[in-house]
Amino acid sequence: MTTQPPQLKKKDFESDQQVRWCPGCGDYAILSSVQKTFAELGLRNEEVAVISGIGCAARFPYYVNSYGFHTIHGRAPALATGLKIARPDLSVWVVGGDGDMLSIGGNHLLHALRRNIDINIMCFDNRIYGLTKGQASPTSEFGKRTATTPMGSLDRPVNPISVALAAEGTFVARTADVFAPHLQAMLTAAAAHKGVAFIQILQNCIIFNDRAFAHVTDREAKNERVLYLEHGAPMIFGKEKDKGIRLVGNKPEVVRLGEDGITEKDILVHDETDESLAYMLSRLDPKDFPTPLGIFRRAGAPSLHEGYQAQFEQAKSKDGEGVILDLIHSGDVWDVK
């Protein structure tokens, strides 16, 4: 009889490498939450593979005591797809920034999502290129002044959640670096999801784009301007739980409970299985609406590697276990005596 090895602790997932992010970088908080979650999920070091692209966030694998691969710019989802098909037994986590995943690697993100490969994708979104020293990123705001856009960016930003939903993502969530319990809850839910999980993690770049998400993470904001999505619960927000989202026709609006006779019954209820609702939530403009955090969409669908396994088994039951000499000798063969 084998004895169950003891559950690992957060520090067991810390590697011996010195962490080299800027002091105050949001990546530290994310790293800590990820290590803690891995331990709490009961994962063994050896069954985790962390795959990254290029950028500040992509240094992540070096700091986790697991198998890790720091690949090339934008390609982590593709490499992780190959790894997961080859090794469905591994828990595969992909790390990249907004530039890595939505610019140079946008194509791979799209296809990893639509294939529903069972990997967990963490997109650290700080709306700037950090490692190359402060250029506009695909999520930078229109008009943003950066090193490459001294008169303001002319590019309109992409919305990572909308993109992930459009790409048929079966688990699409948003959280923030500094909200450790929420972040860990999202990671845990992503790990439990059978299929691809995409988490946009709002992350502060203290050097090149400080306070990019102050409208979400400031003390006042997190109490009053964040909508925590919960499946089956009404979309009520605010420290006093006094505000909510109501649909008028198909347009959302912010209403105050208790005003104009509005009660909880009038408030929109979150449904993780409703794609249209998820998309509508992804479009809420922070100027007029709270920023939703949590799981926008969670839906069951067959995962890619399960499909591979099923076809392997189907082929073997139909044609039998492959015999190479028989295969070579198949077709129109003839003998010369």
């Binding site: 198998y67 490499l79 797809t81 790894l83 080859a86 194509n107 591979y308």
Partner: peptide, 22 residues
Amino acid sequence: ATFQAEDEIAAVTSAIGASFGG
């Protein structure tokens, strides 16, 4: 296992991922 990738880059990187996996 055959993988019709989304592009040439994914074709090679997925293969590298599989090699990493053994």
